[in-house]
Design a protein around this nucleic acid. Structure first.
Lengths: 226, 226
DNA sequence: GACTCCCTAGAGTATATACTCTAATAATAC
DNA sequence: GTATTATTAGAGTATATACTCTAGGGAGTC
């Protein structure tokens, strides 16, 4: 693998594990056993590394949230979207942690992230629309749908922060993707009142599979595999 | 005013305006036109300043969210709670911005914040219960209520982050408390499907007063005063 | 072999940051 | 007044961080 790609990969790994704020370019170089000069040969600065990682993230989520189909949506579709988005969130989880600081430092990133958010919101809204087409939830007026989409987006992007700040007792307690996906439980909570009777049971039991366990403290308890 | 109190006050002010990450102890001392040595005479380190500010924040919110009354809840009560919580959020808005980092650096803070969150969640849940008692929303089973409370909490604590990252176009565009309170619109969105018919109209028009304006970009557009 | 291009090492630097130390001054107690 | 304590100034320090600069190696081409 090319050094440039190794830098991107290791940076992402270290950022995810320790937070962007705690990972310096010297750390990255040391981790890869290359010189700082080498790292700076491939990237002009730290922001460029972050920006490029963001572009991968963006591409991934855009790919997941592409909703080309003209058919109404099934429950499986919805599950796929939820799972995929949380997978993406997991892979690039450092990003939402220091988001505000990162955007303050890089105008390109601010601009792109803003558009990214808007695309995601549009996709979520579209998913709601097609869920209604599929007879899974009640149809909603546009204004309600967009407010709800925004709530969904906030739950999705901040569930990790909630887990890391309020749920786990120690800083070192590392999270698992399974715990992260308990966020799906919270998202489905938003849908409950809009469920059509025919699908109510099914969605409720889907939701149950993601129910947070009582022990968010030290050990992660088991949960049914998806 | 005592130097010690001036330090706390100015720190809060600078943190809110520039973010904790961008404000050093030297900055604080310079801002107050005192020496670093003086600052460190009053506080052992930066963490201690932050911790003390947090305790004020905690006290304030606990005060607001004290729900002693045995009577059912009115719409005015609910409005008061929402307004108060967002006022508190505004006054200490730096805190939720760098939360994860702050908690990683200070175990006391992590511990206290976790309990603080739990108290807030309990209060929110209690508010829902009493709203049901007051005939404003439908009664809900405990499990749904706690999941909903968590969603409400996440919307409240992360609305500011959403505004600063996805809504405004430039880093310098400073937010106003009025924009922050558009978060109330999002919170009330969660309640909509549970509203009892008798109160539906009233709550919807209350919500309308907090509706986000389309121009979150540069200039803040006007909104009806509360 | 010489030239070129891509890549790499590694020492070095300017700046920042949290914090310390000493000495001096103001306030209070007796 | 003198002793004591509380407060302040301000220079200084150890460490870190993002980044630079120069020199050179290795591989391919002629």
């Amino acid at each position: 693998m090319k050094t440039r790609d190794k830098i991107l990969l290791s940076s992402l790994e270290l950022f995810n594990e320790q937070g962007e704020r705690n990972v310096t370019t010297n750390h990255i170089a040391a981790y890869l056993a290359i010189s700082p000069g080498n790292l700076y040969y491939h990237f002009r600065n730290k922001s460029d590394i972050i920006y490029e990682i963001f572009q991968e993230y963006e591409k991934l989520v855009d790919f997941y949230l592409d909703i080309p189909e003209n058919r109404p949506m099934t429950l499986d579709d919805m599950t796929f979207y939820l799972e995929s988005v949380f997978d993406g969130l997991w892979s690039y989880r450092f990003f939402h942690r220091d988001l505000e600081y990162l955007l303050d430092r890089d105008q390109r990133l601010r601009h792109d992230y803003r558009e990214f958010t808007n695309r995601c919101l549009a996709s979520i809204s579209c998913i709601f629309e097609k869920l209604a087409d599929g007879g899974i939830i009640e149809p909603q007026p546009e204004s309600l749908r967009s407010a709800m989409s925004l709530n969904v987006w906030m739950i999705i992007t901040n569930w990790m922060a909630y887990l890391k700040t309020a749920h786990v007792a120690t800083a070192s307690a590392s999270l698992t993707i399974r715990e992260l996906k308990q966020g799906i439980y919270q998202v489905l909570t938003l849908e409950i009142p809009y469920l059509m009777p025919a699908y109510r049971e099914q969605v409720m039991s889907l939701r149950e599979q993601y129910r947070p366990t009582m022990s968010g403290h030290e050990e992660g308890a088991e949960m049914k595999e998806g």
